[in-house]
Amino acid sequence: MEAVMGPENDPELEEHRRVARLLTREPELQALAASQERVLTTHLRARLTEQLPSHDPMAVLLIAEVAVAVWRTCWERWGELAVEGEMEDPVQSYRRCREQLRAVVS
């Protein structure tokens, strides 16, 4: 995930930051993003089911849902920071999100 999110791999980082700011400010866009996340979760669940055939289907769904929730939370917080004028590296946002998840479930 970090490799995909890193600024060295994202020539459109500023465009993504602009979109993140818009999502933070516009509830209508948030609803559209939520519907896209549903599709992402469905695809991730199918891929995980193929790769982890012996896992309980509930566990696979939970993994997919948590992965998308971490991504969404990271993206949302990154957008909030952009609105506040902070230009945090998206990888750093993702790492902080993962750390918070670990703290919550520990």
Rank of each mutant, 00 (worst) to 15 (best):
L81Y: 14
L101N: 01
L62H: 10
Q92D: 13
M87T: 12
I63Y: 04
L61W: 10
E86W: 08
R72S: 13
W75G: 00
A82S: 11
E84H: 12
E88K: 13
R95S: 05
H55S: 13
R77V: 07
R95K: 14
E76N: 09
E88R: 14
W71V: 04
L62I: 13
I63T: 08
M58L: 11
W75S: 05
L81G: 08
S93M: 12
L81F: 10
R77I: 03
E99M: 08
Q92T: 11
I63S: 04
I63D: 00
R96W: 12
A82E: 01
M87R: 14
S93W: 00
R96I: 04
V68L: 03
L61E: 15
C97S: 09
E99S: 09
E65D: 12
E76M: 07
R72K: 15
R102T: 09
V104L: 13
C74V: 01
W78A: 03
S93P: 03
E99V: 07
V83F: 10
V104C: 10
R96Y: 08
Q100V: 07
H55L: 14
R72T: 11
A69M: 08
R77M: 10
Q92G: 05
V105S: 09
M87I: 07
G85M: 09
A82G: 14
V83I: 06
A67T: 14
V91C: 07
E76Q: 15
V105D: 03
Q100C: 05
V104W: 10
R72N: 09
M87W: 11
D56M: 06
I63R: 02
T73H: 10
D56F: 02
E99T: 10
S93A: 14
E76D: 13
H55D: 09
R95C: 06
W75K: 05
